[in-house]
Design a binder for these strands. Structure first.
Lengths: 201, 201
DNA sequence: TCGTCGACCGACCGACCGGTATAATATCGT
DNA sequence: ACGATATTATACCGGTCGGTCGGTCGACGA
């Protein structure tokens, strides 16, 4: 099995294939039943590793959750930063950002669900750290809308409005099926269309 | 303590004050730590009742979750139906619906969080039942947008677009604090403003 | 005064929790 | 071939899980 995902990857530490497989399986279980309802024996069984092997690769169940969130959010974030650097026009930016996050929602549905739905399961320090990543992602959009407002394309948006609009994306993992890969461009067009209309000066 | 909530209540079965208190406390725990991570002993301790008393009022932990969701979603739904019956103009309808759900998010934050974030924790039959309630609520908005489209005020919206827009509301419990009671009208104005712009013909 | 009843308690049940200890096996550089 | 190291399985730990059970207690009707 190849050790790469389709989207760019921040290599914080080597991250073995085994650990990647464990994270994928765990994310699916967490997304399906909720972090608190999934036992380590269940993860062990689903991955095919015994508990010893499992705990050779993870430090704790909490760490596993934190790692899943961190890796996928950093991935999403680095893609967003790249889009911000490459595209200069509002419309392109909004479409590319929409396409980026919606592709993540479809292709890594379980992981994204965990990233946005299971934040409460983290202990305080880690929750704050993950919320910083959420905030950083929001910051990218904030910059897009502020730039657009400065150039007269968008009306100014306050934080409430921006967060409300982000909710469209952050809630979409609950209803966008992972069988909609082919629809990603259409979905991105719909989402970015809504953003463009909602923010029109 | 009065046995009524501020918003209209569907009286399916008597629903004692004790059970109401248990539901409120449990909803706060579920919202704070996630259904699966909250134990019945914890609920028992937080309510001040022993486990015997607790299980005198509830059939199971799963039932408790289901009851919370059902009651609050039916409440939200009946309010929405009433708005649909009373208001005829799009703008009024959108504002009133926004105000209704945002007030629920602020005033019954924990319960609403559970209603929209813990669906996965339900066993199949009950999950389907709760998802029907979600669908019914979506149906109200569908009718509003369809009526508006028929009269030329809105462009036609497909299901993806409607669900995307609903995500704004359904995700808002994660960032709207329960200290914003005074801001409810302003929030409703912002949300409905976005809807009106996003749907403009 | 008693019997009944709803509300409640806390000890207890077997099962399972997250996590560890120990040992067996696979891999690999030399 | 050898030792070292990486990876895995299994048995097991104390503790907690959801839920039950026998029983207590005060209110109330007869």
């Amino acid at each position: 099995m190849a050790a790469v995902t389709s989207r760019s990857q921040v290599q914080r530490s080597p991250l073995s294939d085994t650990k990647r497989k464990i994270m994928k399986t765990a994310a699916e279980l967490f997304a399906g039943e909720g972090y608190g309802s999934v036992g380590t024996s269940q993860i062990s069984e689903a991955t095919g590793y015994g508990k010893g092997a499992l705990y050779y690769h993870i430090r704790s169940k909490g760490d596993l959750l934190y790692d899943i969130m961190t890796i996928y959010l950093e991935d999403l974030l680095s893609e967003a930063r790249q889009i911000l650097a490459e595209k200069r026009h509002v419309k392109e930016r909004v479409y590319a950002l929409s396409e980026s996050i919606l592709r993540a929602v479809v292709e890594d549905k379980a992981e994204m669900t965990v990233c946005f739905r299971e934040v409460h399961a983290l202990e305080d320090t880690r929750r704050r750290s993950v919320l910083r990543l959420h905030g950083a992602y929001l910051g990218i959009w904030r910059q897009v809308t502020d730039d657009a407002a400065r150039e007269g394309d968008f009306r100014p948006l306050d934080n409430d409005e921006l967060k409300a609009l982000m909710g469209m994306y952050f809630y979409s993992f609950l209803w966008i099926g992972n069988d909609r890969t082919a629809d990603i461009p259409a979905l991105a067009a719909k989402f970015s269309g809504i953003i463009m209309r909602a923010c029109h000066a």
